[in-house]
Amino acid sequence: MDLLKLIHKELRAEILNKEIIITMLSFGLSIIVIISFTSNLSKQIIEAYAPGLFWLMILFVTVLGVHRSYAYEKEFNAIDLILSAPIDRGLIFIAKALSGFIFITLMQALIVFPYFTFLSIDIDVNFFLLILSTLLINLTLMFVSNLISGISMRARISEILFPVLLFPLISPLIIAATNITNSIINQVPYIEWQVWIYLLISILIVFGLSGYALFDFILEE
């Protein structure tokens, strides 16, 4: 099970230096504070905008976190250790995406309370549905962003190239995520927003498969 070994490596790296979670958490918190200062408007506006702002924050946090998870591979050319191994390189992509999924979910669990408290939003929703859909969005987000991060990883200006490439490609996902969370908060029946779930699943399939198939080319010298 090469995949499990690779995921184990990602998790061990994170447990040892906690770079990714701390980066994401501290950046997320500071974004929330800035959002509170800049959106001192009526309560209705904030509540209507809350899902969009939430995913905007998650997108920024993802950029930093995922970039970090590829940056440490470049230090000491450490990635050579797994590139020289006889493994399917597509699995490196899957492992990075799945461990990124764990990190972003963990980070969200920690940040969701300050988010709603600082912005004084009260919601009363179907939490089961909200959590389930958020997990699917996180997974899709990680597949797309890990593919783009792999592409920009060895570029000279990877920290800029990554968001410049990611933001346009990920816009359908952000539209879907905002609409899903919005619909759940406003208790819209599932039948009216199921199309977004289908869209998410198709993004997951397209980017998951192309990432798995193309990662060998991306990492080859």
Partner: peptide
């Protein structure tokens, strides 16, 4: 941007092909 600031040209060719595909 990848084409101009990507670095190693052989790698840039591959990554830009991947970008064109996705």
């Amino acid at each position: 941007m990848m084409r101009s600031f990507g670095g190693n040209i052989e790698r840039v060719k591959k990554t830009s092909a991947v970008i064109a595909i996705i």
